[in-house]
Amino acid sequence: MKSLAELAAIRDKMRDKIVLREGGDGIRVVVGMATCGIAAGARPVLNAFVEGVDKEGLNDKVIVSQTGCIGICQYEPVVEVTVPGQEKVTYVKMTAEKVEKVLKEHIKGGKVVMEYTFANAQKA
């Protein structure tokens, strides 16, 4: 059974690491979580990013956050990925499965997954 004592142990382990995370030069992942996003399935997408980043040991390099409606509701769930020094990439109609590929190829590998982008969806 999880106990609050266990949380205290996690706190002690994290104390040193947390200072490093406050620098704002990491990769940013922003998930749209307004009514439109939630209804379209943004919650599992957000979770897949939070869990995936954690599992890959990227917590110091990637910040996952939430925002409201971006204005393209028909393309939800929408995720924006910003790598410092590069243009923002907007991914549309995301799923937890697609998150895996974005994590691997874009966030770890530095290569945009073109097929999931807004630019690509508009062409179709």
Binding site: L4, L7, A8, I10, R11, M14, R15, I18, R21, V50, E51, V53, D54, N59, V64
Partner: peptide, 13 residues
Amino acid sequence: ILGEEIPLGEPEI
């Protein structure tokens, strides 16, 4: 328990 320095939103938490 976490105090000021560890935000609740950290992935580990």
